[in-house]
Each structure stands twice: as C-alpha cells, then as structure tokens.
Amino acid sequence: MQLMRWLGVAVLMNGLWFGSVQSAEKAGPPWADQGPRIMFNVFDTTSLAEVVPDRFFMTFWHSPNTTIVHNVWVAGEKGHLMGGKSIHGEEYGYVHKGRLAFVLDDAREHVVVDEGQFMRWPNVPHWGTCMTEICEIYAWFTPTRDDYGSEGTTMTETSNTWISRNQGE
C-alpha cells in the first residue's frame, strides 16, 4: 500500500515534469512577445542590417511562437553568398524580387521560386540560393528562432548559422 502511494507520487511528479517541459516548448522565450505591430513593408529594404558587407542584409522580428526574417541578397563582384544546410521547424517564404532555387536534403525535390510566389518548407534539411543579381525575400518560422537572440541582436557572418555552416566547405 505504501509502495503504491509512493508510486502515485512518482507518477504525478513525472507528469508534472514532462508537462512543464512541454508547456515551455510551446511558448517562445519571454522576450519574443513584442505585442501587435507592423514589422516592415516588403517594398522598403532601406533599414535592413548589413550582415555581410555589400552581399547580405537582414533584420528579424519575433512573436511568442514565430520569427520572421526580411532579407536581401546581392551578387555583386563576388557572387552570391552560399549558405549551409538549414533545418529549423516549419517555414514559409515570399519572394518579392528575384528568383531562388531550393533543394531538400535528400535531393528528392528541387523547386524554383519566382517573384510574387509563396512557398512552404517542411521541417527537413534544405539548401537555397539566389539565382538573380538581387533577391529580396522574407521567411516566417515556427517555432521561434531562439538562435537569433532577442530583437536587435547584431547578426554577423559567424553568428548567423546559415552563413557560418558553409564556411570552409
């Protein structure tokens, strides 16, 4: 009887612990909730931060369970930045200018996305690159991209995993 009582307590503790973990996973970090707002306009890229000089510009915003990134690629003399493989939850994207190509990890699918098109990536590894002189896009992620840090965190070639993963490859 005593054993059964302790077993009940243990199961309860176990449930509470897993419950707390699952609840924590559902909500992003507290700094992610910035309230309702208009974040940007797709026609205006003048305020994007320069992450890689003359080649890659981006700014990001969070909501409790999502992150949105507005970015611009410029080929210039060096050609486009080649990012590494990415996997970061479910993702949607919109191409405002240019043309991009994406491929899934197992190469079972190649997709070209043109101006004005919306696309969805499943939660599997993928690569992407800009195929025109300039590409302007935004991408929406869920869950929140904690790896970016809070809004306003300076993004660099090494802190941006999409860029840094491909260094030396």
Binding site: P36, I38, N41, P64, T66, I68
Partner: peptide, 27 residues
C-alpha cells in the same frame, strides 16, 4: 485595419506591402 478585443492594444492600420504580427489575441 486590425482591431483587438483588448482595447488597450492599439489597432493596426495596414497598407499594401505591410507585414504585421501578433500573439494569441482576439482580433
């Protein structure tokens, strides 16, 4: 326009090209 049931939240007045976000709020 995006209006929120919680009147302490300011409404959003959006124009062509704007991208807005909010958490789990009645609107």
């Amino acid at each position: 326009d995006v209006e929120f049931a919680d009147e302490t939240q300011q409404p959003l007045h959006m124009k062509t090209g704007d991208v807005a976000s909010w958490g789990n709020l009645s609107h």
